[in-house]
């Protein structure tokens, strides 16, 4: 025990040296990291609580039915019919989803089963960059190029259709990359098996691979839907922001997010609370989608049976 080398060894590691009364740097670090972790777990609750608190006056003073049955959306004269905005949000995001999912599937299928690996990897990098592209760029391009073009077909140009098109362009990279990752993780045996049975590429891809990764395709679509539903700037810029139910895809509409952006600057207290309430609704929808995605991806050990 008197070996000098052994007694010298702890000096090498500062982490071993007590900081006083048995507190080690290791212990301090552990606590600090645990605090950060705790922060991560409660922050979502804090955000939810703050928004709920903002919406509380509206929940207390206005009955639920009035948000659907009031004659119109005129918060100045206490009319709070949110139906046009709800319909606007649902139509734009579902439209974008319907347009984006097949295209994303096609891109992911091409990158994995048809393109040569170099071309596929270049295409993936482009998608990777476009997935994070500032959405205001999409909105600005939609406003200056797509809206005038649609306006020539049928005035006024700012419309549900413009919103659907630009939102679809915006979410395609995200959904395509998610489906692409699922395809690239397919077990080799499955592909070898399909080819050994004489399946063509189209058969391998669309009758085998797509079925195996169906959960991933579904959750990619859900994440895309969530992005489209929460998008604000693009829809403010290209959908015309008219708080009325659309009769055709060329009619202007207004989404819940656009409504908040446009009105919160001058809103009276109760009006502000209704705007918080509309964001609370979106928050709950987003949470629901996240729970569904979580269930599909993280709690699932049976995705691939080989």
């Amino acid at each position: 025990m008197t070996n000098p080398q052994v007694s010298a060894a702890p000096a090498l590691s500062r982490a071993h040296r007590p900081l006083g009364s048995g507190v080690t740097f290791d212990g301090v670090l552990r606590v600090a990291l645990a605090i950060a972790f705790g922060f991560a777990c409660i922050i979502v609750l804090v955000v939810a609580f703050v928004i709920l608190q903002g919406a509380a006056p509206a929940l207390a003073q206005i009955s639920w039915a009035r948000f659907l049955t009031d004659p119109d959306w005129h918060p100045m004269v206490e009319m709070y019919n949110m139906t046009p905005m709800l319909v606007g949000s649902v139509l734009t995001s579902i439209g974008a989803l319907v347009l984006a999912t097949p295209v994303s599937l096609a891109i992911a299928a091409a990158c994995n089963f048809y393109l040569n690996p170099l071309a596929a990897s270049i295409y993936r990098r482009i998608l990777f960059v476009m997935a994070a592209m500032p959405t205001v760029i999409f909105g600005f391009w939609g406003l200056t190029e797509v809206v005038p073009f649609l306006g020539q077909i049928k005035a006024p140009g700012v419309s549900l259709l413009a919103g659907v098109l630009i939102l679809a362009l915006m979410i395609i990279p995200t959904t395509a990359l998610l489906i692409d990752v699922a395809f690239s993780k397919l077990p080799r045996q499955l592909l070898n098996g399909a080819y050994a049975l004489g399946a063509s590429r189209a058969q391998t891809c669309f009758t085998m691979a797509c079925v195996v990764v169906r959960r991933a395709i579904f959750s990619a679509a859900l994440l895309g839907l969530g992005r489209a539903l929460g998008e604000t700037i693009v829809v403010v810029m290209v959908t015309g922001n008219k708080a009325a139910l659309p009769t055709s895809i060329f009619d202007p509409i207004r989404t819940l997010t656009a409504n908040v952006t446009l009105e919160i600057g001058y809103a009276a207290p109760l009006h502000t609370a209704t705007l918080f309430l509309s964001i609370l609704i979106l928050f709950m929808i987003a949470t629901g989608l996240a729970l569904l995605v979580y269930k599909l991806n993280f709690n699932d050990n049976t995705q691939v049976d080989v």
Partner: peptide, 8 residues
């Protein structure tokens, strides 16, 4: 948190 709309 990642799927909550940014406007929230």
């Amino acid at each position: 948190l990642a799927s909550v709309p940014s406007i929230a």
